[in-house]
Design a protein around this nucleic acid. Structure first.
Lengths: 223, 223
DNA sequence: TTATAAAAAACGTTGGATATTTTTTATTTT
DNA sequence: AAAATAAAAAATATCCAACGTTTTTTATAA
């Protein structure tokens, strides 16, 4: 579930390869700008050349891999500018989604937001005590689920898809911050609490500001 | 150029297949929800089974095709709800892009907007006189170029990518409106003129409203 | 050193083959 | 006659091996 799009989509070879590559790109095992040679990847991850190509095309769609005709694939670069762009777009997408959710969401939606927030708090606890790879991944997934819950009631499948996509793209940066011990979990918790409170109070302005603030803090490297 | 992503990307088989399929999906030759069987497509468009699969994965990334594990590909459906969703997201993306462009764009950007607008007017002329497929396509491309010019100075490559993607997804609807004679070119021209004027006057509010109004008119089926 | 030519590597593509899964058709059973 | 089941057909997802092209690297000459 952690690195496959839907529950048990790992039935196909391509889906499994995609999961494995996603994970390694997120952790930086496959570094930004690194050339992705089909043969090399096959030896490391298995699969035929076609399966691998298909996989890379998929990851291309997700923004994790870039391709140039006749010159193959490489891991999408991850400069400061890239980070800023990804996060800035994320802000706009999630603001829109949250606004729509606040318009259409009912009490059940509020419940799901609270639940996701609660689960995230637990995951934060875990990752603070024991920041190994698996725990980190579970924490990031809980994080994704929380932000996803905010726009869940937007009624726009495409917006939800975009959010997922850009959150996934920002994972590399977030995991790097975690690894470097640059995340201030207390401040995060505080900001997120404010965000949830604003949502429950149906205070659109406050909620959007809190959301923006939260993402911008991540851009700044969690000052 | 018309249906290939970048200038001469039609060097590869997959890119050519993608162009052909894009065109046929846009014109409805390949209808919404239609099953896309590899063998069938191969006979019609050529290419090996692998090339075709890869092509379909690409189109999947673009939102024109959907896939389910073990059950192949089909043309993305195009219900009223789909249309609304695509267009609503388009509005948000383009509003954001235009806002950023207005912040960062210089006089050269203004020039490019004017140029794109001018070219669009010419294309509209053409398609009114002679609405065959090729002309229609050229008109839609001019239209795309115009809207792209508005967000060109946003400084966000990812936002620009999103705009392209959603504009492409909305093409099917637009071409259908044209075919059914439901487009009021005079009104379009008027709205677009207002939009450009607001941009040149650097009146953000007016520009954003005009942009929204223009896209919403298309949702309504150009009332 | 810079330019050029030769060699090696990697990409894109094809054809054919096969196990697995899904869909359709035919046959029982209730 | 409808529902359940079994058998047959179709379609998907894969793999392997091969080959022409293009790109990149290496070696050689200017």
């Amino acid at each position: 579930m952690l690195f496959s799009k839907s529950k048990s989509d790992d039935v196909t070879v391509v889906a499994m390869l995609a999961s494995a590559l996603r994970r390694d790109i997120s952790f930086g095992t496959l570094r930004p700008d690194q050339k992705l040679k089909i043969e090399e990847l096959r030896q490391r991850y298995g699969g035929s050349n076609h399966s691998m190509r298909e996989t890379l095309r998929m990851l291309g769609a997700e923004g994790l891999v870039e391709s140039t005709a006749q010159r193959g694939f490489r891991v999408t670069s991850a400069t400061e500018d890239d980070l800023r762009d990804v996060m800035q777009v994320r802000i706009e997408i999630e603001r829109t989604g949250l606004e729509w959710s606040l318009k259409h969401g009912d009490v059940h939606w509020e419940g799901r937001v609270m639940a996701a927030h609660h689960a995230l708090r637990k995951s934060e606890q875990d990752v603070r005590e024991n920041p190994d790879d698996l725990t980190a991944l579970q924490w990031d997934e809980a994080s994704r689920a929380f932000f996803a819950s905010l726009i869940e009631a937007s009624g726009s499948p495409r917006l939800i898809g975009l959010q997922q996509k850009f959150f996934d793209q920002s994972r590399r940066y977030r995991l790097a911050l975690l690894r470097e011990g640059k995340l201030d979990f207390d401040k995060r918790a505080e900001r997120q609490k404010k965000l949830v409170e604003a949502v429950l109070a149906r205070d659109t302005d406050a909620a959007l500001n809190a959301l923006t603030e939260e993402i911008e803090a991540e851009i700044r490297g969690e000052a």
